[in-house]
């Protein structure tokens, strides 16, 4: 479904040159969920943004369905690949009602039957039609994220790029959104690429994942291996340990380099 070969993303030149992503490759099967894990500055979000055209592809190949993507991406691409952003407070236009937000993609692509599609999209993400004419400020964080998911799904894409979709939400709301995403994938046969700093979230949603650090791929592994604690890499191991909470007696492990 999605194939990334030797992807490299570089910002700036000379002394200002930043290598955000260095030589990253991975392959995602149709209907699979693939995770990108890492800390800030690991380049995981940049990979996602490079796929959808929000970041430049300096070298390497990104192909969807076996076809290399073009720059700028065409309308057909956006009907296949959609994205859900991290912060539901920033990803909805503050002056647009839910109705306007959801009808915009339909209008851009000249889709008919907007009325029914909007109601259907709301239903899919578990919101009642009464939400249709609300403004974002009248919604809670979880409801906003549901609207953002509905907006991404309204064009019936095949691939959903999820950029930390739950990290701005409360734990209990996170569970609801994760369940929703799990459910939608099964029902609509979607392919996910999930970016997160939270190993548990990635392991919950994805089968395979790539651990990234400083723009490089550290290790590709499976959720099952992660659960059994089988990580060959020290960095992955330290991430697993940190995700278990604070350990008081633990001897100091190799410290993460402070940038």
């Amino acid at each position: 479904m999605l194939d990334i070969q030797n992807l490299q993303v570089v910002y700036g030149t000379g002394r200002m040159r930043v290598d955000a992503v260095k030589n990253v490759s991975f392959h995602v099967e149709p209907g699979a969920a693939y995770g990108l894990v890492g800390e800030s500055g690991s380049g995981k979000s940049t990979v996602l943004r490079a796929i959808c055209g929000l970041a430049p592809i300096t070298s390497g190949r990104v192909s969807v369905h076996g076809n290399a993507v073009t720059t700028p991406r065409g309308k057909a691409f956006y009907r296949t690949v959609q994205m859900v952003f991290q912060d539901p407070y920033a990803s909805l236009h503050p002056r647009h009602t839910v109705d306007r937000t959801l009808s915009e993609p339909l209008a851009i692509h000249g889709e008919k039957d907007a009325e029914a599609r909007i109601l259907q999209a709301l239903k899919e993400v578990g919101l009642s039609p009464s939400f249709r004419f609300r403004y974002p400020h009248q919604l809670s964080g979880g409801q906003r994220q549901r609207i953002a998911i509905a907006r991404a799904l309204i064009l019936r894409p095949k691939v959903l790029l999820l950029d930390e979709p739950t990290s701005a939400l409360d734990a209990s709301v996170q569970a609801e959104i994760l369940n929703l995403l799990d459910d939608l994938r099964r029902r609509l046969g979607l392919t996910y690429i999930l970016v997160s700093h939270d190993l548990a979230v990635v392991a919950h949603l994805c089968e395979r994942l790539l651990v990234m650090q400083h723009g490089e791929a550290v290790e590709e592994t499976t959720a099952a291996a992660l659960r059994s604690g089988a990580a060959s890499n020290d960095y992955t191991q330290s991430l697993i340990q940190a995700s278990q909470g604070f350990t008081r007696v633990a001897p100091l492990p190799a410290q993460a380099p402070a940038a």
């Binding site: 209990s172 569970a175 392991a203 659960r227 995700s243 278990q244």
Partner: peptide
């Protein structure tokens, strides 16, 4: 409600 690495509840 927190997902954990220890077990896979779904």
């Amino acid at each position: 409600c927190l997902p954990t690495l220890a077990d896979d509840v779904r």
